[in-house]
């Protein structure tokens, strides 16, 4: 079966994030990394392909001018990648992103389109649902466990109070939570092989998608900061200080 996995290249979350004060755009460093939460989707995609003798193609949208994060994803074992990297997509919102991914998915053909629940840097959390709508397929969102059940996909879908077991025919969009699987580490061989795997680079025009975010940032301001309070060493009596605190808050 044909498995597509959406991955995102983002600024390294370990380094401080900055906004350009003139444009209010995120300052994107030249080198970007694979969004760590995408590793769960890649692992699910690889397992589905392994179970069905299928192939995994990565889909990623820029604009980044870099391929480092995609190579990291390929190193885990995907067969190839499609990277839509275009300065025209600089101001893309969630819907434009979904249009690009859906158009690329239609172009590649798919049985399952796997995504994370939300990206680490933008976390709009609606791209999988939008892509599913554009593709006219079920959106199996917030999946914490995934397996094939005959021709269908069986998932555990997170709910506010627990989970539902959902059975769905294919093709479908599947968004997986962190913790759904244990992502594999790329092997040295995988890293070497990733350098030579095919990456198809497309523009927005290749997919006939135009970017119109329909929204603009008016202002960015620091949030009111919480003041750090009293910090004490435990020294065997920390629990009594907490009890005093709870008394003063009239909790006990």
């Amino acid at each position: 079966m044909q498995v597509l996995v959406c991955v995102k290249q983002i600024p390294d979350p370990a380094s401080p994030s900055l906004l350009d004060p003139d444009t209010n755009r995120l300052v994107r460093p030249p080198e970007q990394v694979l969004d760590d939460t995408d590793r769960y989707g890649i692992e699910v995609g690889l397992q589905l392909a392994e179970q069905t003798d299928g192939a995994v193609t990565l889909l990623s949208m820029g604009p980044t001018g870099t391929m480092q994060g995609v190579r990291q994803a390929l190193a885990m074992g995907a067969d190839k990648a499609v990277l839509v990297d275009d300065p025209a997509l600089e101001d893309s919102d969630a819907l434009t992103t979904a249009k690009v991914l859906a158009a690329a998915a239609r172009r590649e053909g798919f049985d399952v389109l796997v995504t994370g629940v939300e990206s680490t840097d933008g976390y709009s959390g609606v791209v999988p649902q939008m892509a599913a709508e554009l593709l006219g397929v079920p959106a199996l969102t917030f999946a914490r466990r995934v397996e094939m059940d005959g021709p269908d996909l069986r998932i555990e879908r997170q709910t506010a109070s627990g989970f539902d077991v959902v059975l769905s025919p294919l093709p479908a969009v599947l968004s997986v939570t962190a913790g759904a699987v244990e992502p594999r580490y790329p092997t040295f061989r995988g890293i070497m092989a990733a350098r030579n795997k095919p990456v198809d680079t497309l523009t927005a025009a290749d997919l006939s998608v135009t970017s119109d975010p329909g929204q603009r940032i008016v202002s960015v301001a620091p949030a009111p900061e919480r003041q750090a309070g009293e910090v004490v060493e435990d020294g065997g009596t920390g629990h009594l200080r907490i009890v005093e605190f709870l008394e003063s808050a009239r909790i006990i």
Binding site: A94, L95, Y123, V126, Q129, T141
Partner: peptide, 24 residues
């Protein structure tokens, strides 16, 4: 409200009527 099913409905509606949705 940003809950599971509402998030699914909002995303799908946005794509269907081609209007942006702002999250969070």
């Amino acid at each position: 409200a940003q809950t599971y099913t509402s998030r699914d409905v909002a995303g799908r509606l946005a794509a269907r009527i081609d209007r942006p949705v702002i999250s969070n």
